[in-house]
Design a protein around this nucleic acid. Sequence first.
DNA 1: ACGGACTGTGGGAGCGCTCCCAGGGGGCTG
DNA 2: CAGCCCCCTGGGAGCGCTCCCACAGTCCGT
Lengths: 337, 337
Amino acid sequence: MTGNRQPTIKTVAARAGVGRTTVSRVINGSDLVSADARARVLAAIKELNYVPNSVARGLVTSRTDAVALVIPESESRLGAEPFFAALIRGVSGALAETRTQLQLTLVRDQFERDQLAASVATRRVDGVLLVSVHTHDRLPGMLEEMGLPTVLAGRRDAGEQLSYVDSDNSGGAAAAVRYLLARGRRRIATITGSLDMDVGRSRLAGWRDAHREAGARADGALAETGDFTEEGGVRAMRSLLERAPDLDAVFAASDLMAVGALAELRRQGRRVPDDVAVVGFEDSVLARHTAPPLTTVRQPVEEVGRTMARILLDITQNGADRRQVTLPTELVVRESS
Amino acid sequence: MTGNRQPTIKTVAARAGVGRTTVSRVINGSDLVSADARARVLAAIKELNYVPNSVARGLVTSRTDAVALVIPESESRLGAEPFFAALIRGVSGALAETRTQLQLTLVRDQFERDQLAASVATRRVDGVLLVSVHTHDRLPGMLEEMGLPTVLAGRRDAGEQLSYVDSDNSGGAAAAVRYLLARGRRRIATITGSLDMDVGRSRLAGWRDAHREAGARADGALAETGDFTEEGGVRAMRSLLERAPDLDAVFAASDLMAVGALAELRRQGRRVPDDVAVVGFEDSVLARHTAPPLTTVRQPVEEVGRTMARILLDITQNGADRRQVTLPTELVVRESS
DNA sequence: ACGGACTGTGGGAGCGCTCCCAGGGGGCTG
DNA sequence: CAGCCCCCTGGGAGCGCTCCCACAGTCCGT
């Protein structure tokens, strides 16, 4: 059906009347080729419609020009799509500049996650981008041990040694709380993210920091653990209202949880922002579509993706060292506060 | 840093005291291996922590066990994320069953799209999944011509020859309109999708069909072309209200456009559903979060992705023929109608 | 005038794997 | 007991490419 098989470097060499090596040099942009030879090779390539076989190249160079992006499937659902879409856009954009391919791996469960290390060892990718790492995750360490450069989205803890790109979680949270305090709110509750992730702990820390700065006390009864889901936001809001009916603001560690909180507040007849101000974290599309529109801490998700990819490429292509980057966040004020 | 290099099939063979071929047979599950030899090989593999190099294998088998999913970047934005997230989940799930890798390619513009054919010719993937094909798209044809199996999400037109998986667009649209008619609506407008895509035309056709069935006339003035975006929905709704202020229902060919329509209706003081009923298409997360929650035609996006992957694998692995599949849709009634 | 450096070139080897084929044993048949 | 088949086995070849190295030619400087 395909007629003749694909031309190889040998075919091109024969056609151009040169050796394989010269063709290879032209393809790889070496300047140790005479203008004449180069022209003949380029002509032959064009005539034959030749495209180098990247698998063969990969075998000898032991580089694949592909990186893996690993995403836990459970977290690609539940309204977290915009986050991953933006991240992918950032990663993909940076990779496109260097013709690096993106291999997307959705991991369903812990078993698959363990398998992953092995599968990645089949040398299909030059490096790995890892999202949603939990504090006691073994995978990042395993990957680095196998000699596979790894960049995390978010660190495992404050002492993270591997490369990572993170948003300024504590700073962003503190900014949100400072703003609420400045607007006269005095009983500012928080719905935290999962506390087995640094992002959860850091945003909680920001809530505390801002209180401390202002000489106020962060009342422990005003902090309720959520899990980054909408349903978690509902539950946490309900507990908070029981425990501290006098609260006048809630800082939720994610937009999704803020949406849950809004729903529960409405159900209990609290007006937003009149009775209770609500602030989220992320500034996803969601935030613009809630009623009322959500004040939130914007994190530069696409930029996080782009930076992760750039760091990884810098390591795989230029042998750069590990790098840790924290990107600034920004408070976006809407009508919920 | 990595210490010793990765073990190869030769290392394993030596360790197990067998030949390379025997190791290869064990790995590939051939049954022409004695129980004894198999056991020794498996032990050696475990001890050495050996993982076959899939690049080397790919070179000789000329299979890569990877498929590409190509998504236009412009359409991965703007609230269309849930669609792609679901599609990717479906694809990824089906691929995981056969250990096939997913290469995600976001295409920014027409130039990149043209380049794609070449890049794909570097033989990094065994097949291609294509999303959002326009009617006069040349890419699908080019890919098939290169001998690369291709499966489309949605057909280019009613006479599509390539493999595709589609939702029942005209049927779903017709069901929506029938429902509106049954509820006593008489002036049912429609906001169409892009008409250079079959999905846009088919949903429009469904709107017409349902009218014809009912012996009603589909008034041309009640159809306005949108482009699947929220902003497009706003504009179309505005034109419709000018042209046909007496309309009492709108069928939008996407949830996103329905969201735009809702906003414009609210702005103009029309009550939904009292004055105007609104129905969308897709049943994305959006639909549950609008005010009022959106009646919509659910399309099984994840199932579309899964089916696409299965068809492609069936072609690349079993040499199956092209296949066209249309999956049923379902009307989900909420409060906007 | 001659050695040396430097440019351009191409063949050999080998990346790690699979597949072809030749071959050695054991069990069965006649 | 010879002959045959069938099961299992392993070495050679080669997938398409890059890299090492050897080599021819040119241009210097002394």
